[in-house]
């Protein structure tokens, strides 16, 4: 698989405080993003996610290390030609209307006038902002800014899209729409680099993830490798059995309205419970096997630090 974005041993120091003291924010970050994948970059607040992103974009300069985009040094304008970027909590020129705003960014990519008009219209349509096309951005809500920001990131039909918290500030429906757009980008062969701490979303759409904690990458790889498919436990909701009948079979979690929720860790115990239910004419309401989630992995990795 072709590497689209390669980061090698990047270090970044910031000077903090009144009497400047050097603080290391990135402590040798390395990872590679392959073509046509959705790469999730996770980490708790202040771990260095946005700092890494700013290094890639040339907003800040790494003190050590190498960054390459499409095999070229990252500061080359040619490398940025095929790059799209949506910052976290985007703020834009609020004196521009949505259409003027997208047109301005398209001009920076030297898109021709006729083509610009068409592209701006189709992008407004894609992010569902048709109705607000002649509204100044100062009148936009946060969710609307997020959408117009995404449109801005796609204005040059980029091969690599970097998104910093693209789902922040959106309602559930909006989140689904943006998720669908991201999946569509992948289907079109584009590569997506996604910074987020909304783990459910990442889990739903990412192919590979890297977890950064305190400036170091602690875990990275394909999501399917990192999260084991093994069933951790099974949650069973049943009624018609007393708590004492279930003693020793699992961990009883709650009992409401005659229903008992029980957490079972061993497979053979599940069978025992099923037999018991059958014999006593009790009733099973649900039986849900729980595999490891990205959240479990995340908590595990962060806590190990």
């Amino acid at each position: 698989m072709k590497t689209v974005l390669a980061i090698e041993n990047v270090h970044k120091f910031f000077k903090v405080g009144f009497i400047p003291k050097k603080k290391e924010i990135l402590k040798g970050v390395s990872f590679a993003v392959a073509e046509s994948e959705i790469f999730g970059y996770l980490g708790p607040n202040g771990a260095g996610k946005t700092t890494t992103l700013k290094c890639i974009l040339g907003l800040i300069f790494p003190d050590r290390g190498k960054i390459e985009i499409f095999g070229q040094p990252h500061l080359e304008p040619r490398a940025k030609e095929r790059l799209g970027f949506l910052p976290e909590n985007p703020y834009f020129y609020d004196y521009l209307t949505a259409r003027e705003f997208l047109d301005f960014y398209a001009q920076l990519f030297r898109v021709k006038k006729d083509e610009r008009k068409e592209r701006v219209a189709s992008l407004l349509n894609l992010v569902g902002m048709d109705r607000a096309r002649d509204l100044q951005l100062r009148k936009f809500s946060r969710g609307m800014l997020q959408r117009i920001g995404l449109a801005q990131a796609l204005v040059n039909e980029p091969s690599l899209v970097l998104l910093d918290e693209p789902l922040g500030g959106l309602d559930p429906l909006g989140r689904k729409e943006i998720r669908d757009i991201i999946i569509r980008l992948k289907a079109e062969g584009k590569t997506v680099f996604l910074c987020s701490h909304i783990l459910q979303d990442i889990e739903m759409i990412c192919d590979r993830v890297a977890i950064i904690v305190d400036g170091k990458i602690l875990s990275q790889g394909p999501l399917t490798d990192l999260i084991s498919e093994k069933i951790l436990f099974t949650e069973i909701t049943l009624s018609g059995l007393a708590a004492k009948d279930l003693a020793g079979l699992g961990e009883s979690l709650s009992a409401h309205g005659g229903r008992t929720l029980i957490k079972v860790f061993h497979e053979e115990k599940i069978q025992e419970i099923l037999d018991l239910v059958k014999n006593r004419n009790a009733k099973i309401h649900s039986l849900i096997p729980r595999t490891q989630t990205l959240e479990d992995l995340f908590v595990e990795v962060v806590k190990s630090q």
Partner: peptide, 10 residues
Amino acid sequence: RTIFTLISKP
């Protein structure tokens, strides 16, 4: 922070 999106352009 409008400069973020600008500088990231070519």
